[in-house]
Simulated scan of single mutants.
Amino acid sequence: MVKSTLHSANTSYSQPVETDFLVINNLTKSYATPDGGEFVVLSDINLTVREDEFVSLIGHSGCGKSTLLKIVAGLERATSGLVTLEGKEIRKPGCDRMMVFQHYSLLPWLTVRENIRLAVDEVLEGLSNSEKSRIVNEHLAMVNLTAAASKYPDEISGGMKQRVGIARALAIRPKMLLMDEPFGALDALTRGKLQKQVLDIWENHRQAVLMVTHDVDEAIYMSDRIVMMTNGPAAQIGEILEVPFPHPRDRQQIRESSEYFELRNHALNFLDRYFVLDG
């Protein structure tokens, strides 16, 4: 049976205080319109994420998933409400939260190694050169890019570029990883391989992850919980699904279970319901 938590505009979601890491409390995000009005993107969002939890945000385009992620990253400010990490309000970007975007954001004049080293130099400036090199080498190996370390971005594939971005984000040892459609620009085969690789890394180096995706199968395979958003404007958390599969995960084994199909159908029915309403 699918375990879910239902939400409405007057319902908040919380977990026991000792597990709270990221806390989003009564968050609303709106923009002023040219006619002097207000366009509400997100309304009364309440969510907590544990320090070792993988959470996915899913919903139709325009429901504010990426906006919520940017607020957690400190790239945008909420109109009202509060977002805290370990009890401290998030007001701006910080090295405790690293973002991986759908598009690779690599500096084309730097090699793979140099793109990762740049982030390490910026954030971990107190370390010795040998320690910084050790960290870069460790993360190159973690994403299987040691052999490509001296290549430039235009000499490697899209999947490899995304692995550089992930290695760069992880190398500075953030407390939370934020991913906005990180596999969306990849072909199906590369996407599946990279999903597994990222999940393997996470299972061996647990940290909080908040990932935006449109892919139900991806969310089920990778996540501990799936946060399903209602349509915008004024989007809310409609439902949160608990994913029951233990880690480490085997994709084939999961897909052969009745729980997988029940969870998948539940998520798709939720999305179909809002798609019909949107149409």
Rank of each mutant, 00 (worst) to 15 (best):
S157F: 15
P244W: 05
E155G: 04
K65I: 11
E242W: 05
V227T: 08
Q253G: 00
P108V: 06
A188W: 03
T213Y: 04
D278G: 11
D52C: 03
L75G: 05
K151G: 00
I201N: 01
K3H: 10
Y13A: 13
L106H: 05
A78T: 14
R273V: 08
V49I: 15
A235C: 04
I24M: 10
V136N: 02
G59L: 04
I254G: 02
R50C: 06
M1N: 07
E259S: 15
M176D: 14
A267L: 10
A73N: 12
D52F: 06
D215M: 11
F183C: 08
I156P: 02
P246V: 11
H7A: 14
D180P: 07
V40T: 14
N265Y: 06
H266A: 12
M179L: 11
E155R: 10
R134V: 01
I172M: 11
Q15K: 13
T28I: 00
Q207W: 05
V17E: 15
I58S: 03
A234D: 06
I226K: 05
A167P: 09
P233H: 06
P233Q: 05
I90P: 01
K196N: 14
Q236M: 05
P233W: 03
V136K: 02
V227E: 09
S257V: 05
R77E: 13
E262L: 12
N265I: 04
T67H: 12
N231G: 02
A32N: 05
I135E: 03
Q252N: 14
D187H: 10
V72E: 08
Q197T: 07
L47P: 01
I240V: 15
R249W: 03
Q253D: 06
M160V: 02
M211C: 06
N46M: 04
H247M: 03
P174G: 11
I220G: 01
G36L: 11
E131C: 00
G279D: 07
V112G: 00
A234T: 03
Q195S: 02
T11M: 09
L85E: 00
A9S: 08
Q207R: 15
